[in-house]
């Protein structure tokens, strides 16, 4: 029995299969030939630039008198930069490139007339955005380690933690994108959601320095949880309760975003 006959012989519809997801990833991996530069720029160029300018340059000023951060400014912002870079990657990839696949270039339209299902496509899409960030995240963490930021063996898990942050933004934003007819609102998302979150998620200063209302808003964002998780892993200062919260809270965003993306693709391409 050939592979096609095997799929055709399945009597009942299964909405999700691991092989479907694997085939989707294989397909995307071949396309990586043109996408690897972005990964290297994000994974190497961004942290080197930021760590030199902010970690060492600005850090020199911050650390001149004993700071209240409990560690050097370089150690403080390094993991935060990793998490906020993940947020920016996930958000950006969930906007224009997602629109291209669903509407402009039609790649997903072609995929949906194969045995692939909408569920596999939605999971694969969010998963592949995250997988590519993971590659960048590994490089990024390597650069952080090179700057001497790693203070614990837990640091090895920072690329995974940042990838979770990436997915927590990619999934809900992909759900939003899947229902859009054009990209008119995308620059607004970047300007009024992503950039403020970059500044107010605790990557550059403790959110306790914010006015009380903004501090609580910051605590509700998955990016703050991502920054905290990366920072805790880097320092090795982990508490079970807060670590679990920093993992489960962004995971909820991933799950809701996945359900939304699935529904959005179905509505846009399947009616």
């Amino acid at each position: 029995m050939t592979a096609v006959e095997r799929i055709a012989a399945q009597s009942a519809e299964t909405s999700f299969s691991r092989s479907g997801l694997l085939h989707f990833f294989e397909y995307q991996f071949v396309r990586l030939r043109t996408g690897w530069r972005g990964i290297v720029v994000t994974g190497v160029f961004t942290p080197v630039l930021f760590l030199l300018v902010m970690g060492l340059g600005l850090g020199e000023l911050v650390d001149r008198d004993a700071n209240e951060l409990g560690t050097s400014y370089l150690n403080y912002i390094g993991p935060g930069l990793l998490a906020t870079t993940a947020m920016q990657w996930g958000s950006q990839q969930a906007l224009w490139p997602t629109m291209a696949e669903i509407r402009w270039e039609g790649g997903y339209k072609a995929a949906l007339v194969t045995p692939l299902t909408v569920a596999e496509l939605a999971a694969g899409h969010i998963g592949w955005i995250s997988a590519r960030f993971f590659m960048a995240g590994v490089l990024f963490s390597g650069v952080l380690a090179g700057f001497g930021i790693a203070q614990s063996w837990w640091f090895l898990l920072t690329p995974l933690a940042a990838t979770l942050t990436c997915a927590a933004f990619a999934a809900p934003i992909a759900a939003f994108t899947s229902l859009q007819g054009n990209d008119h609102l995308f620059p607004l998302i970047m300007r009024f959601v992503v950039i403020p979150l970059l500044l107010f998620s605790g990557a550059f200063f403790p959110i306790t320095n914010l006015p009380a209302v903004l501090e609580w808003i910051a605590r509700l964002t998955p990016s703050w949880h991502g920054v905290e998780l990366c920072r805790d892993l880097s320092s090795g200062d982990l508490a079970l309760g807060s670590t679990a919260l920093h993992i489960l809270y962004p995971l909820a965003f991933v799950l809701v975003g996945y359900i939304g993306t699935k529904a959005g693709i179905k509505k846009t391409l399947g009616t």
Binding site: V4, F24, K109, A110, V113, T114, P115
Partner: peptide
Amino acid sequence: ARLGVVPQEDILDSEMTVRENLVMYSRYFG
């Protein structure tokens, strides 16, 4: 799994070669 679909527009993958377009699409079929 047993259908072939030729849509109105040529939604081919511009990031792949001609042959890769066929090989990788085959993988969707297992």
